[in-house]
């Protein structure tokens, strides 16, 4: 039945291959392993070593434009343009960057422009920030020179958690 007794795992060759000792580490395939796996390969990969400089942070660079949703369980740094919602642990909108949509996060630092909304525990608006829309926060710092056109609501966390339970209780009463 098992033709050539081939296992269905792609990265573990049954044939012994001496020049590829890294094959055992292949199934994990994390960021850290991707660089060493390609390093001994003769194929041209001039960009690999340089790309492993920032393991956790996602960088939306200046040349990049994203239309749609962005979701991460780690930090996001935006230097380019995003049209849509951004969710991350810590979101940094760099100088010159533009975001159109809601930015959710534990900590949001704004040095660029947001047209939309910020919902975060800790918000920092630096001197070059341009904020058009509401900021829902627990803790905010605004540097001199920041532009804000919107409301500041110190209710992040409280307001978000409660309405889910309260309306139903009111409906019963």
């Amino acid at each position: 039945m098992t033709m050539f007794s081939r296992s269905d795992k792609p990265a573990e060759p049954t044939v012994p291959q001496p020049p590829r000792p890294q094959a055992a580490a292949q199934p994990l395939s994390s960021t850290s392993t991707s660089a060493p796996t390609s390093a001994p390969a003769p194929a041209p990969s001039p960009v690999r070593p340089q790309s492993s400089q920032t393991p956790g942070v996602s960088v939306i660079s200046k040349a990049l434009k994203i239309t749609g949703q962005l979701e991460s369980t780690e930090d996001i740094r935006i230097d380019g343009e995003v049209e849509g919602d951004v969710r991350g642990l810590s979101v940094t909108v760099g100088q010159g960057a533009r975001v159109k949509g809601t930015v959710y996060g534990d900590a949001v630092e704004l040095a660029g422009a947001i047209d939309g909304r910020i919902e975060a525990k800790k918000v920092v608006l630096t001197a070059t920030a341009h904020m058009e829309g509401d900021v829902v926060h627990q803790d905010i710092r605004i540097e001199s020179g920041a532009y804000i056109d919107g409301h500041l609501k110190p209710e992040h966390g409280k307001a978000a958690a409660k309405p889910a339970t309260k309306p139903s209780e009111n409906a019963k009463a």
């Binding site: 994390s30 960021t31 960009v47 340089q50 790309s51 920032t54 393991p55 956790g56 942070v57 996602s58 960088v59 939306i60 660079s61 040349a63 990049l64 434009k65 994203i66 239309t67 749609g68 949703q69 962005l70 979701e71 991460s72 369980t73 780690e74 996001i76 380019g80 849509g84």
Partner: peptide
Amino acid sequence: AACLGLALKVTGL
């Protein structure tokens, strides 16, 4: 180079 990290999920263009 722009890097869309390990934990990042992008929907769209």
